[in-house]
């Protein structure tokens, strides 16, 4: 625990005019804010927005998860360099990385929960990691803003690419403002799902183009699949649902996708 300096408000050596002004500024109330309406809006938005899956993990757990992902990725990389990678080597890579398989979404040097947002896929999917995710160890930085960066997410179009190609992609920083814009775009797509699935699909594609490595990949892919079903493009929907459910089978949108496919017959 450190000893903080005396606040200006409480420091008698500070001239009265400044202390008086600061006191007035400290004793304000917020006028014109409709808290109930804002809360209702937030509830509506959060009802359909996925939460970071690893929320609440301890720092040690987050570090361990990050390390495990890297170990798995490195092991896979080593395995892929073998002329004929054996099943055993892939298996050992998977075992050494508890969250294994198609780990793609994460943020490097962002916030703990953004790191924790790394997807935890179904255990039964023995696919190799698609992208190596750098582990994040909490360390101080010299700026206030922690920018959302380096989300190693492949594009929807590339979702079915061989893992080796995906693994070769460099992790690039995302734009600082990307999350807010992405969330708005995906929310628009979601809103169109019922009445205008074609528009929803178009917006989902736009989100894919604009934010290929965004934070809401799972949701936009789910919207696209549901839109395809609604448009009667069932084969395409099923084709895209397969890798989606393999990756996000336990996610917040899996049930909706399964239901849509079930309804499609």
């Amino acid at each position: 625990m450190t000893s903080d300096p005396t606040r200006l408000l409480e420091d008698p050596s500070v001239v009265a005019s400044m202390r008086g002004d600061l006191l007035s500024a400290a004793e304000v109330h917020v006028h014109g804010l409709d808290v109930a309406s804002g809360l209702a809006q937030l509830q509506a938005a959060t009802a359909t927005t996925a939460v970071a899956t690893g929320a609440g993990m301890s720092a040690a757990t987050k570090i361990a998860v990050g390390l495990a992902v890297t170990v798995g990725a490195v092991a896979l990389w080593a395995g892929l360099r073998e002329p004929a990678p054996s099943v055993a080597s892939t298996t050992s890579a998977t075992i050494s990385a508890p969250i294994s398989a198609p780990v793609v979404g994460s943020a490097v040097k962002a916030t703990p929960t953004e790191v924790a947002a790394t997807e935890i896929p179904p255990a039964a999917v023995p696919e190799p990691p698609a992208v190596a995710v750098t582990p994040v160890v909490e360390e101080p930085e010299a700026v206030v803003a922690k920018e959302p960066v380096a989300v190693g997410e492949p594009s929807d179009a590339a979702a079915e690419e061989p893992a080796t190609r995906k693994a070769s992609r460099a992790v690039r920083p995302a734009s600082p403002s990307s999350f807010v814009d992405e969330a708005k775009l995906v929310a628009k797509a979601r809103a169109q799902l019922t009445n205008s699935p074609a528009k929803a699909l178009e917006l989902a594609k736009e989100a894919e183009r604009t934010f290929p490595r965004g934070h809401l990949v799972e949701e936009r892919r789910a919207i696209a699949i549901r839109a395809l079903v609604a448009l009667g493009r069932h084969d395409e929907a099923r084709r895209r649902a397969k890798p989606f459910l393999a990756r996000y089978g336990r996610g917040a949108h899996a049930a909706a996708v399964r239901r849509a496919l079930g309804d499609a017959g």
Binding site: L33, G38, Q41, L42, A45, T46, T49, A50, V51, A52, T53, G54, A55, G56, T111, T113, E114, A116, A117, F179, V180, A183, H215
Partner: peptide, 15 residues
């Protein structure tokens, strides 16, 4: 405000 709390939601809330 909405954006702030939506980000808070996306981060899994406060622990």
């Amino acid at each position: 405000l909405q954006e702030v709390f939506l980000v808070a939601h996306r981060r899994g809330g406060f622990t």
